[in-house]
Design a protein around this nucleic acid. Structure first.
Lengths: 253, 253
DNA sequence: CAGATGATTCGGTGCTCACCGAAATGTTAT
DNA sequence: ATAACATTTCGGTGAGCACCGAATCATCTG
């Protein structure tokens, strides 16, 4: 206790950016986090198999990630479920991934190639829709005057009416602390897609109505025939956004 | 070249989150990035002294950060200037810092304690105002109806009028690709402050009018007497936000 | 209760990397 | 030209850590 600082301790607190980054700096841990961006809870064993490391190694990684605040865990009997700590964690992770350099990964099988195409077409991004479909939705909503870019991105009056006409519950007051409309940089297409509370509500609605179905243990979303009809009727989405086989993956420099 | 994928290469590209995070996972490199969040360009030597490592070590770090895309460099004769790559880099860094755990750092001198108090009171956050002053500005603008939270955070009509009355140039059309109004999590106060294009314009305006002055080689902003008068008249900011000595730093758990 | 299953603890190994100092390179000042 | 200065290159050292396997603990199933 010093004279010049009688009522404070003689220490201060600084955000430990390096400690947080170190959690993500390992390829295995990064892969785990990217997998958890599907928004679901995974068991330790599933993650071990996914990341192709021994269960013991996975345990160590999960301990670090949980105690670092990135993951939340829930134990049920003999198994350990983990998921991302929250929407803000997911958002920051996606932003970071959009900023990251690209790395070449080999494709070893036809199944892998198909899976990758599906992933580029439509996938979850925590609690909303990403991929070519997500990008097309944002573009169409902007073009049709449901979203406006004048003062940042906002839902217009027409947009609010459109949502209620669809039967999407208004997430406004309940999610007061969360931005209503937001964008997220897509790492496959390098363009923006819709996130925020509206993006999340739209995703849930599409799931409920059977427009899309989510595959197990991946982030892949499959568009149903009903979904294609709905997106055509509601937003006039072009076929290129509705069929995986037509999804264009641009070469990267 | 395989039959099943005749026109694509048999490799795909994934964002290398781990590689990006590894850049920030070192305490020295993280300190360098945090220093550069003042928005200015630093020489390699200045950063070496700031981070308390040998010049040769600094060179290696800067090489990594530049080639990783986080920093932009500019050489002038025998010296090397570096700055953050862009506003999106700065934004992601601040978000990350807001998510990071806290670390205790010892305070070794009275000067350090004063500096820290000033930093908590008002500082730059790349291109806008952070600290207690920044938080107070956001709160006051919201309370006075210049910003609204109904559909995400937006500038109201009254807010736009207020800005033009002040003489702040409208950054709207010129910064079309950037969000007009945005918030940034403050690591000192753990509350939001105003960023985005409007935040940047406001900061520049306050500098031009002599409301605040920026100290050399730190992120510290000092409020002038004119500035205090202006913020009282325009936003009715309370004294607690106008005087560093009254700035409250809450204990952390 | 026995056997299977999911997760954890622990010891040991190998690799990566942050750091420094000394010498070298290139630029500005006297 | 010579001196002072800013930065870089390089070799070597030491610490941290991701990984595995074997053994152990806890839980569920037959």
């Amino acid at each position: 206790m010093n004279r010049w600082d009688a009522d404070n301790e003689s220490v201060a607190e600084t955000p430990d950016l390096a400690a947080l980054a170190a959690l993500l700096a390992d390829r295995t841990r990064a892969a785990i986090c990217m997998a958890l961006l599907d928004g679901g809870a995974w068991t330790a064993g599933e993650l071990a198999e996914y990341a192709a490391v021994a269960p013991s190694t996975t345990t160590e990684h999960l301990n670090l990630l949980v105690s670092g605040g990135l993951l939340a865990e829930e134990r049920q009997g003999r198994r350990r479920y983990v998921r991302l700590a929250g929407p803000d964690t997911a958002e920051t992770l996606e932003n970071l991934a959009g900023l990251a350099p690209y790395r070449q990964v080999p494709i070893r099988s036809l199944a892998e190639a198909n899976q990758r195409r599906a992933l580029h077409h439509a996938r979850t991004c925590y609690d909303h829709i990403a991929g070519a479909l997500g990008v097309a939705i944002l573009a169409a909503m902007t073009e049709r005057g449901l979203l406006a870019r004048d003062y940042g991105l906002v839902l217009t009056g027409a947009g609010a009416q459109w949502l209620t006409a669809l039967g999407v519950p208004d997430a406004g007051p309940s999610a007061a602390h969360r931005a209503h409309v937001r964008t997220c940089l897509d790492w496959t297409v390098r363009r923006q897609h819709l996130s925020g509370a509206v993006g999340a509500a739209l995703y849930r609605h599409a799931l409920d109505r059977g427009w899309i179905v989510k595959a197990h243990a991946t982030r892949i979303l499959t568009l149903t025939e009903t979904g294609r009809a709905a997106f055509r009727a509601q937003l006039a989405l072009p076929d290129a956004a509705l069929f995986p086989s037509l999804t264009f993956s641009p070469p990267r420099g």
